[in-house]
């Protein structure tokens, strides 16, 4: 049933919260906290769903997304991007880069569980 989720996020408390929620729902959660080698990690782990923060240290979420799409092993993976509101320009760039879904912070716990489940199918 539930598969692997890679969570790329730099805020420790948010990582903790999402990990707790998804693990309780039966997912295997991998975390990574900076953009530098995120795409590489994604290729190694081969998750069913990638959750990607838009603002990461060293490298923006968009750039990480482009790398994920460029890599054959991860190019088809669904990517859920976490954004803050009011970043329309980023959103358009992300859509162009091939994002699967957006979720605006702060989100409801149920929504993120449902979205990951939906994206995994």
């Amino acid at each position: 049933m539930a598969g692997k989720v890679l969570l790329i996020e730099d805020e420790p408390h948010i990582v903790e919260a999402i990990s707790f929620l998804l693990e309780r729902a039966g997912w295997q959660v991998f975390t990574h906290s900076n953009g530098q080698d995120a795409a590489e990690v994604a290729g190694r782990i081969a998750p069913d769903v990638i959750i990607l923060d838009n603002m990461l240290p060293n490298k923006s979420g968009i750039d990480v997304l482009r790398e994920i799409r460029a890599d054959a092993t991860t190019s088809g993976k669904p990517v859920l991007m976490l954004t803050a509101k009011g970043q329309a320009r980023d959103k358009a760039a992300a859509e162009e880069a091939g994002v699967s879904m957006f979720m605006t912070k702060p989100f409801s716990n149920q929504a993120i569980i449902d979205t990951v489940k939906m994206l995994a199918q």
């Binding site: 948010i14 803050a84 509101k85 912070k105 702060p106 409801s108």
Partner: peptide, 10 residues
């Protein structure tokens, strides 16, 4: 939004 996200989730 960052601290609020943590607060809301927990």
């Amino acid at each position: 939004r960052t601290p609020m996200t943590s607060i809301r989730s927990f």
